[in-house]
Nucleic acid binder design. Structure first.
Lengths: 147, 147
DNA sequence: GCCAGATTGACAAGTACCTGTCAAAGTGGG
DNA sequence: CCCACTTTGACAGGTACTTGTCAATCTGGC
């Protein structure tokens, strides 16, 4: 029987905190996006397309998701008039997803709210602590990716 | 136009790391659970029921999920012979979810694998760092919960 | 004992992801 | 030019969660 070591227990506590904070951040993101008629997923897709129209496959690669996930979100954005597909002279299959004026204004609105929220929260945590956590999490992420 | 402060940018970097590590942890959990015919969600429900049979509503409260989410997972566990519903003399509506021998052995198998995995990873990160990250994340979580 | 209100499981529908499969379109080697 | 390989969007189906609604059951105050 393999039991948890002391370190293993400390590590498990970290896992639970990551899950908890992740859930709270997602909820905060949805709350930030909601007044603009968006959700976290829709807002993030709009954010990518804001840098320039791109295909579903390109957005998926940038966001680290599958094409299918992005397609679903893109379809709903088009349905709601936030984005539209333009013909792509480079590739007949892959139309370019682009912001509509309505999508752009919704995105700007969320970005403003998000910045105020991030500035506020960031001000309540010591900068050194902030950097230390980010560093350790990055190391942990690399460790997890390596296997 | 509200822009991100320096601290806000540092905070945003932390957000991305939390999302990344969360995704990697979920993937690792599914990988750990898969050989036993489980998933992260199914394994966690079994883990709760292992402490003693309880109703769907009780499991949901313990896990911080809705009854509906737990009901779905519980139904699939019962379908696969990992758990079963027993009549509850205290409440005619709320049957008690309990482990079957097969569910118990699957759970034990995952717990062994999970402990070895956690011990291994925990050994690669300094204990002080581990504690510091957990502490800061807990503070951040409390901050997020307060609003 | 009864009735109001809370709790519970079930059902419906929606969001956000996933995998697998397919045909159409693009790309490069001989 | 053509044929193999890759990329792409679309479709089907699955997982894991959500909210809202409903009727049945439990619980506490009078």
């Amino acid at each position: 029987m393999t039991a948890l070591s002391d370190r293993g227990r400390e590590f498990s506590a970290l896992l639970l905190e990551v899950f908890r904070v992740n859930g709270l951040l997602l909820a905060a993101g949805d709350e930030l996006a909601e007044p603009a008629g968006l959700t976290s997923a829709r807002w993030q897709v709009l954010g990518v397309v804001d840098h320039g129209p791109c295909t579903i496959a390109q957005v998926a690669r940038i966001m680290g998701l599958t094409r299918q996930a992005v397609r679903q979100t893109a379809t709903s954005l088009v349905r709601d008039g936030m984005a539209e597909f333009h013909d792509n002279p480079q590739d007949l299959r892959a139309k370019l997803l682009a912001l509509t004026p309505r999508g752009r204004s919704a995105l700007r609105q969320v970005e403003r709210r998000q910045a105020a929220w991030a500035n506020d929260l960031a001000g309540r945590i010591a900068l050194a602590e902030l950097r230390a956590v980010t560093g350790t999490l990055r190391d942990l992420g690399d460790l997890l990716e390596d296997r």
